[in-house]
Amino acid sequence: MFQTVDELIKMASEQRLSISEVMIRTEMETTGKSREAILSKMADQLLVMEQAVHRGIHEDIKSRSGLSGGDARLLKRYIEGGQMLSGSVLLGAVSNAMATNEVNAAMGTICATPTAGSAGVVPGVLFGLKNKLNPTHEAMVNFLFTAGAFGFVIANNASISGAAGGCQAEIGSATGMAAAAAVEMAGGTPEQSAHAMAIALGNMLGLICDPVAGLVEAPCVKRNAIGASNAIVAADMALAGIKSIIPCDEVIDAMYRVGRMMPTALRETALGGLADTKTGRELKKRIFGSAPSSSGVKEQ
């Protein structure tokens, strides 16, 4: 069992294992379940992710409020036009991430990674890199174990709740997890994974959770988009040999402490940030008015 990124990296290095293998063995030890059962459950999660991405890209998704849906498809068409300023791998990841969160906003089925509001980043990056790296199915499942290992440390030492720590705790965490997993899939070392995570999460510090009308739509869908691109850039930087000046565990601790300092208005209460702009307030009024949202429900 590992409590910190430092311990995770040491376990991997000393036993000459990948991060994903350390996570699989730890899971076997903690739950008493067989390797087959654990691998098969993760393959199920992967399938749910793939289906959500597919739906978001190929179906006409629209949320009940009308605030989100269709942007993943717009971006996909733009990529196919070939005139993009960045690259197809990066924008593909972004498009997949948005697809997942658009499905989520429309009350579709997703796999929380680590949360539903941040569910786009990890699968976005994974399926974005698929065309570039041609991973085996096993390698794709391992990507999720590596992402999970880093998320596990964040969740136990800081927080993965926007209500507790702001968006940095949700999409920030997802971005760090995806960056670390991308490094492993690309053939980097466990240390490089930790640096990628530290760079990615470090770049998301202070990010507030300010959902317009309290809905997991704006800015959430686009923040997943930026999270996915940030993760790939951080992974590339780490693979190039760039190191985070502040060690990964200290970045996680900083994220936790920044979250503690964040006022309630900026932690998923929809009382600050973009939610509390002129347009944000008008949208809330238009969507909910003064009437209850659902029949049969009284509000006091």
Binding site: T31, N104, T109, A116, G117, L144
Partner: peptide, 24 residues
């Protein structure tokens, strides 16, 4: 340790939109 399993992080599979406000 509040979170025990890797599937607390990569999961749950759920209906959106929020893991804390909907699934929880």
């Amino acid at each position: 340790m509040k979170y025990r399993s890797v599937f607390d992080i990569i999961g749950p599979v759920m209906v959106g939109p929020s893991s804390s406000h909907t699934a929880g």
